[in-house]
Design a protein around this nucleic acid. Structure first.
Lengths: 232, 232
DNA sequence: CAGTGGTCTAGACCACGGT
DNA sequence: CCGTGGTCTAGACCACTGT
C-alpha cells in the first residue's frame, strides 16, 4: 500500500491541529518549509501553499529569514457578504419590491461631499428609495451619485430598475469603503420605514470610486430587528 | 533586453483591467489557462494562481470543463477585522482601561441558551465588564461562559485580565458566529455607558465553539457614534 | 468521452531582512 | 552574509463535469 496521498489541504489540517491543540504555542517558531516538506513527505511548494492559507487567515505570521511563527493574536476575520438587496430579500424567501421616493439634482450635504472627496460644490443626483420585502419596508436608501462619473444613469428609468442594481452591473468600482453604525430614526425616516421615531436603525454606508473618481455614496437604513450575520 | 518579468501579480492586474474595462463582459467566457499562459509568456501555474485569487475575490467563476467566466454579480465581500478591544483602542491612540462590573454564576436567559445550543439549564459564568478608552466608556460587555469548556477561567483574576483577552490567548475556537445589529439603550446600559436611555447602540454578538462544545456568548454594546469601517 | 481547472513535483532563482 | 519565504517553470497526473 502506497503512503496516503499528501495534498496541501492535509498539511493545512495538520498544522491547524497543532496550533489548536497548543502543540505549537502562540508566538512559537515552527519548522521551516523545507523541514516540514521532509516530514510530510511532499514538495516544498505544497507546504508553502498550506502555510500561506493559514497566514492569510491570520493564524501564522511569516517573515523571510525570521521564519514562520504562530500568531500571538489570531486576528478574527469575518467576511461579510454584501449582496444586492434584491437578492438579499429573495434569499430569505421574500418577494422584492422597490419604490422610488425622490429624485432630484442638488447640492450634497457636507458629510457626503467629504466622503466622496469632492471639494467643489458640484450638484449631484440625489435618489431616495425604499426596498420592500413582501410589501413591508425592508431598507431605506439615501443615495448621491456623481453624474460626471455615470452619465448614462440619467437615462435609466429608475422607477423600474433600482440604482443599486444598475450600478452594480454597469459601473465597476476599483475602491470602496463600508461603514456600519447605529442611529436613532428621525421623524421622516421613521414614517418611511413604518417604525417609531427614536427606534434604533442599523446603518450601512458605502462609498465607491473608480480610480480616483467618486461614483456614489449611499446609506441604507434598516429598521429595528435587522441583523447582519457571518461565520468566523 | 529580455521581456519584462511576468509574475502572477501582473497577470492578476491585467485580467482585472480587462474585467473593469469591460473588455471581458460579465458572464463572458475567458480563455483557458493554457492559452492565457501562452499569451502572457509564462507557466500555466502562474496564470492559475492569478485566476484563483480573482475567483476568491468573487470576480471570476471557475468550473472544470465549463471554463472561467467573468462573474455576473461581483460579490461584494468585506473582510472585517475583529480585534481584541484592548488593541482596537490602542490602535486609535487611546489608553485602555477595564472595569469588571459583575461576576456571578447564574442561569442564562433563553437567548443565550439557544445561541449556545444548550438544552439543559446548566448554570453559566456571567461576566459584565466595561472597556474604557482614556477613561471614557468605550464598550459594555455582557458575557456568558460555559465553565465546563473552560474550567481554568474560574481561577483567573478577572479584575486584572479581561475575559476577552484571556480567552483569545488560551481557548482556541473552531467555529464562531458574529451578529451585528442595533438597539436602543435601556436605563442600566445607558448609565454604564454614560449615554442617554433610548440612544442607538451598535451591538456585536459573538458565539464560539470548540468542535461542538460551546465556549462563550458575548454581546458588546457600543455607545452612539461608534463605527465599524472596512475597505471593499 | 474529452476539455478544463486543480494540484503535485523537483529544481531553480530571487528578495527580504536578521545577524 | 546567508537563511528563509516567495515565486516561477515545465511537465505530469488527476478530478470534475458538460456534451
Amino acid at each position: 500500500m502506497p503512503p496516503a496521498p499528501v495534498g496541501w489541504q492535509s498539511v493545512h489540517a495538520e498544522v491547524l491541529r497543532r496550533i489548536r491543540s497548543r502543540e505549537w504555542l502562540p508566538g512559537a517558531l515552527i519548522p521551516n518549509e523545507t523541514d516540514l516538506a521532509a516530514e510530510f513527505g511532499c514538495a516544498r511548494a505544497t507546504v508553502s501553499r498550506a502555510l500561506r492559507e493559514l497566514a492569510d487567515a491570520g493564524l501564522l505570521t511569516r517573515r523571510r529569514k525570521a521564519g514562520t511563527h504562530v500568531a500571538l493574536n489570531p486576528v478574527r476575520k469575518a467576511t461579510l457578504q454584501i449582496p444586492v438587496i434584491h437578492e438579499e430579500i429573495e434569499a430569505r424567501g421574500g418577494t422584492y419590491g422597490y419604490a422610488l421616493i425622490g429624485r432630484e439634482t442638488a447640492q450634497p450635504p457636507l458629510q457626503v461631499r467629504s466622503a466622496l472627496g469632492l471639494a467643489a460644490a458640484d450638484p449631484l443626483l440625489h435618489l431616495r428609495a425604499l426596498h420592500l420585502s413582501d410589501g413591508a419596508p425592508y431598507a431605506y436608501e439615501d443615495r448621491w451619485v456623481n453624474p460626471q462619473a455615470v452619465p448614462a444613469l440619467l437615462d435609466v428609468d429608475l422607477e423600474r430598475v433600482s440604482a443599486n442594481a444598475w450600478l452594480v452591473r454597469n459601473v465597476p468600482y476599483t475602491r470602496g469603503q463600508l461603514i456600519l453604525s447605529a442611529a436613532t430614526a428621525d421623524a421622516d425616516t421613521a414614517e418611511i420605514l413604518r417604525c417609531a421615531p427614536g427606534d434604533a436603525l442599523f446603518l450601512a454606508e458605502r462609498t465607491t470610486w473608480t480610480g480616483d473618481r467618486p461614483i456614489t455614496w449611499v446609506r441604507q437604513s434598516y429598521p429595528p430587528g435587522h441583523r447582519l450575520a457571518t461565520e468566523l
